[in-house]
């Protein structure tokens, strides 16, 4: 096996069961892992490819996670930083379900409000709530508007 095909093999190595997140905005793969709570200490088997050439979006990142199917709230979080991503659920080596991601109009429990004076950052029995608007993400409680570095505010 040549070095080249070996590398290619690493990138596209199929998984038996799990999730392939494709068409991630180039450079955001590590943020996707962060969102999914995958750190050096977790046990999942992960493959990450960054800056892969893509006819569709130029450069892209790909993340494969074995033996884990993403929940909807995880998909919503990914949509925030990689709006063009596609999620492929793999079962028995076959694509069981393929879908794009959409940002829901209301993000519940996804974003931590950056405003230290916001009631959502206290011990009250509520979860954070952000409305998705043209201008950015707006806190339902204090109206704080997040327009950039969204990944830094994801819970």
């Amino acid at each position: 096996m040549s070095e080249n095909s070996h590398q290619k093999g690493l990138i596209i190595r199929p998984i038996t069961n799990g999730t392939v997140i494709d068409h991630i905005t180039a450079g955001e793969a590590l943020n996707v892992l962060k969102i999914l709570g995958i750190t050096g200490t977790t046990t999942e088997s992960i493959s990450v490819a960054t800056n892969v050439t893509s006819p569709r979006i130029g450069r892209k990142d790909i993340v494969k996670i074995e033996n884990r199917e993403l929940r909807q709230d995880e998909v919503d979080r990914i949509a925030l930083i990689a709006p063009q991503a596609t999620i492929n659920i793999i079962r028995e080596c076959a694509v069981h379900n393929k879908k794009g991601v959409t940002i829901p109009p209301l993000l519940k429990g996804v974003i931590r409000c950056p405003n230290p004076g916001c009631i959502s950052n206290t011990k009250e029995p509520i979860i954070s709530s952000f409305e998705v608007t043209r201008k950015g993400l707006q806190c339902t409680y204090c109206d704080w508007l997040i327009t950039k570095d969204i990944a830094n505010h994801i819970i």
């Binding site: 004076g117 009250e124 204090c142």
Partner: peptide, 28 residues
Amino acid sequence: TLADTIRVISGYADAIVLRHPKEGAARL
């Protein structure tokens, strides 16, 4: 919590006027 206080006072009063130091307290 404010949530508990509000639930209790809701049982006493016909309306609540709230002043609170945290932003978004009234929405909560």
